[in-house]
């Protein structure tokens, strides 16, 4: 499996808070290959942002990783164990070097008092051995590549002078200027208008094809995933409950949560079908349900099984994995196969 760009194994992350130890991510494993777009889908509280930040060790100080957690980054044949990197110098490889991240709120990600150009040049100077002049030229090239017209003028401008879509594109330009192997996109299109969103998604797909990067695309919008991603992983309350190719998960969802989610999404092609919400409310992270984390809201829950035992990932078909007793054994099946 060394072909994988980044491999996450058994990642478990807890936060120390005033209210106790909160489990944000519970035993999550996935991998991203070069040139692949992996979509990480989940609602609020699912732990997807926290997982992404772990890949660059960007979580706040009160984060506690379990000892079995392992994140392996493969760059130019060399393996890095991200969680064991301690000093900032070691982490420089990961942060901004081999791995770049773009965020939901680009206004918050650009320093407001420094021009966009200066920030891009700073990034290049930190991670590559270009000199200032080369960095300047390359940054303007990148701005043009992402579709920002009149790049030399824009280079001298400040973040607040850009519109939302342009800011996001400038952010993509900045993230990609160091030619990272993996791009983590944390809800990049959520704050954008739908017409701009379409442009940005297209841009990201083109750039992946051109640079051969892998993208970890985090969002709550399954429509965007359907249009962009190759593979999808669905998270709920810190657990990865289903993984598969985009076609498998969307056409043939195995986990009741995925099914519920797909039914709740309003679809333009099915205007006559009423919207069916997933019943109940997402439990507070202080209140994690025993057994399967979803059982409190699951209409197909098996009494005595789903509320006591934690389901393990089972392969349903090639590449399609789900953690669910109902998917594993069918709706009745407690009697079949022992755990």
């Amino acid at each position: 499996m060394s072909s994988a760009l980044i491999k996450v194994e058994n990642l478990t992350l807890q936060f120390k808070t005033d209210e106790g130890l909160i489990t944000a991510v519970d035993n999550v494993s996935f991998e991203v290959a070069p040139g692949e777009i992996l979509g990480l889908v989940g609602e609020s509280g699912s732990g997807k942002s926290v997982t992404a930040k772990s890949l660059m060790q960007l979580n706040p100080g009160n984060a506690v990783y379990s000892p079995e957690s392992r994140i392996t980054l493969t760059v130019d044949g060399e393996d890095f164990d991200v969680l064991s990197l301690k000093t900032d110098r070691d982490l420089k490889v990961v942060r901004g070097g081999a791995v770049s991240m773009i965020f939901q709120e680009p206004m918050a990600s650009f320093a407001p008092a420094i021009t966009i150009g200066d920030q891009m040049v700073e990034q290049l100077l930190l991670h590559t051995n270009m000199n200032k002049k080369q960095a300047h030229g390359y940054s303007i090239e990148m701005l043009e590549r992402v579709g920002i017209s009149d790049a030399p003028t824009r280079f001298e401008q400040y973040a607040f002078e850009f519109s939302g879509g342009m800011r996001q594109r400038a952010m993509i330009a900045m993230a990609l200027s160091t030619k990272p192997k993996l791009l983590i996109a944390d809800e990049p299109t959520t704050a954008l208008d739908v017409t701009i969103q379409a442009q940005v998604i297209d841009l990201m797909k083109d750039l992946v094809a051109e640079f051969g990067m892998g993208i970890l695309f985090i969002t709550h919008d399954l429509g965007v995933i359907a249009q962009t991603a190759d593979n999808v992983s669905v998270m709920y309350l810190g657990k990865l409950i289903e993984t598969g190719t985009v076609r498998q998960v969307i056409r043939d969802p195995a986990h009741p949560y995925t099914q519920g989610l797909l039914h709740a999404i309003p679809k333009l092609e099915q205007l006559d079908v009423p919207l069916t919400p997933v019943p109940g409310d997402i439990p507070s992270p202080l209140d994690r349900p025993p057994g399967c984390v979803f059982h409190t809201r699951c209409s197909q829950m098996i009494e005595g099984r789903c509320d006591t035992d934690i389901p393990t990932p089972t392969t349903l078909s090639e590449g399609h994995v789900a953690s669910c007793f109902v998917a594993q054994y069918g709706p009745g099946g407690v009697a079949e196969a022992s755990a």
Partner: peptide, 10 residues
């Protein structure tokens, strides 16, 4: 606007 809405059909 209508066509920009990402469709759920991969």
């Amino acid at each position: 606007l209508l066509s920009a809405i990402p469709s759920l059909d991969p």
